[in-house]
Amino acid sequence: MVLGTYKEVVAARSTDKQIQKIAQDGGIVSALFCYALDEKLIDGAVVAGPTEELWKPAPTVAMTAEEVLAAAGTKYTFSPNVWMLKKAARQYGLEKIGTVAIPCQLMGIRKMQSYPFGVRFLADKIALAVGIFCMENFPFASLQTFISEKMGLDPNLVEKMDIGKGKFWAYTADDVYTLPLKETHGYEQNGCKICLDYVAELADVSTGSVGTPDGWSTVFTRTDAGETIFKAAVEAGVIETKAIDDVKPGLGLLEKLATDKKTKAMKVIDDRKAMGLPVPYKASSEKEDPLANI
């Protein structure tokens, strides 16, 4: 099961024209948080918000739709959102917290919920964890290398970045620049190389562009809480859906990418074990499903 446990998978997008315009793909994260804030299902959401430095995000607590939208769009570098969860509870006084997280961040959140050794009164305040598909993450300096050195672009002119169709994309007001993904290899953060999760298997709802056409997102509902909120958002008309079998390229591509990531990671895990280096995961020989995130 390379796509993790899920209840339902659909193609979806926000019906809000403004969100469609600024979102990375289908605007699912923005739409869900705006809806959940409106309906008071969450008191606020920890998002990767903008900072003074362009393209360098920082964990931010969004309490209004406006603040959610200010954080729309993917940033391909670190935003340690888990760090902000405790502040959201303590300093902002939130009782029901939403957060957007990449797979490794969800691992930190879920481990904290199952084993809250030193984390007091936070585990049950995570009301909605939206996961995003993630192949790897880049240190900020790597992004600078792609944009400034390899593409010869002024980072200040870049309005959107994207990864898809085998390329790293940078959009300015007038032009589109691309870099073959091969050129980005070696610039990823190293910790990603043992990661066995592509599709945010531990989220309440996970989403990403792969599997659906431009302007749409693939959405998995995984937990009861995730299913309830997503269905309510669809019912309320803030998100529209299509059957995943009716769209191109469909689940096949997602399965392929998830399998590729897991297969590569298992090789690194097994190699590290052979060298005696620590790895928190089991070796291929130690588990039934060699690609399981265990």
């Binding site: 964990p59 670190f78 340690p80 959102n81 888990v82 760090w83 902000m84 969860l85 405790k86 990449i102 490794c104 961040q105 691992m107 930190g108 959140i109 481990k111 904290m112 050794f117 030193g118 984390v119 993450n137 953060q189 190293n190 910790g191 990603c192 190389k193 043992i194 990661c195 280096l277 620590p278 790895v279 928190p280």
Partner: peptide
């Protein structure tokens, strides 16, 4: 045990947990 071992992914769980 984490950064030196090429294991850190910058999730921020440690900083969140620090009491």
């Amino acid at each position: 045990k984490v950064v030196n071992q090429a294991l850190c992914i910058g999730c921020g769980t440690c900083a969140m947990a620090c009491q």
